[in-house]
């Protein structure tokens, strides 16, 4: 009974939060509601005994991805009126994409996409171990390919942002360490009566010692 109660609580809050993500006027609130939705999804995972996935959802999506979303959304200077103006124009394509996702979810649920993986009951084996068992044996190659795709994405992101910008002063520790005393400091013997400027115009090395 209590479990059913919590299921409906989590599910209702999640759906409400999901709706608010779409309709909130301020994008920062959208991201905050998205985080709430992630949390309730994690709660639902715990209810079906998948605590490992629940924790991963919180660590990865809430702890890292949503922080970056929030970061970007807070820093952007967004014109709300302009953003809402395109709503009518983008509604059909949004509905099509959403419809395809719903269809795929239903097809996966009622089709036989998941029947190949037979997992033992949650009481027999901890789900961390169960996941590891299938991930590193049956789906080994797919797992490696997923890793490679992430690596490519990472290299892409780095190569997009790694560029030398002029006018930015940046600390180059190697350059600092390479500096020798002779390059930066010199002892000038100023004769009595001569101004310092006349001495300094003589290039270093050519001066009489």
């Amino acid at each position: 009974m209590i479990e059913a109660l919590f299921f409906y609580l989590f599910a209702a809050v999640m759906l409400g939060a999901g709706l608010m993500v779409v309709v909130s006027r301020n994008p920062v609130f959208s991201v905050l509601f998205l985080i709430l939705a992630f949390f309730n999804a994690a709660g639902l995972f715990v209810l079906i005994g998948a605590e490992f996935i629940a924790m991963l959802l919180v660590v990865v999506y809430v702890g890292a991805v949503a922080v970056l979303f929030l970061f970007v959304v807070m820093m952007l200077d967004i014109n709300f009126a302009e953003m809402r103006a395109g709503f009518q124009k983008y509604l059909p394509i949004g509905l099509v994409v959403g419809g395809i996702l719903v269809f795929e979810l239903v097809a996966a649920m009622y089709g036989d996409a998941f029947s190949g993986a037979t997992l033992p009951a949650a009481s027999e084996i901890s789900n961390t171990r169960a996941l590891g068992n299938v991930l590193y044996t049956k789906y080994m190659y797919l797992f490696q390919v997923a890793g490679l795709i992430l690596l490519v994405a990472m290299i892409g992101a780095i190569s997009l942002t790694m560029r030398r910008r002029s006018g930015v002063r940046r600390q180059v520790i190697a350059e600092q360490n390479m500096r020798r005393r002779e390059d930066s400091v010199e002892i000038v013997d100023v004769p009595v009566g001569a101004s310092a400027r006349t001495v300094a115009t003589v290039p270093p090395g050519k001066r009489e010692r």
């Binding site: 490992f52 924790m55 991963l56 919180v58 660590v59 809430v62 702890g63 890292a64």
Partner: peptide
């Protein structure tokens, strides 16, 4: 709980 250390990590990342 089984995933105690992950729970700690998740909470500290929040």
């Amino acid at each position: 709980i089984n995933v105690g250390i992950l729970y700690l990590f998740a909470i500290s990342s929040l």
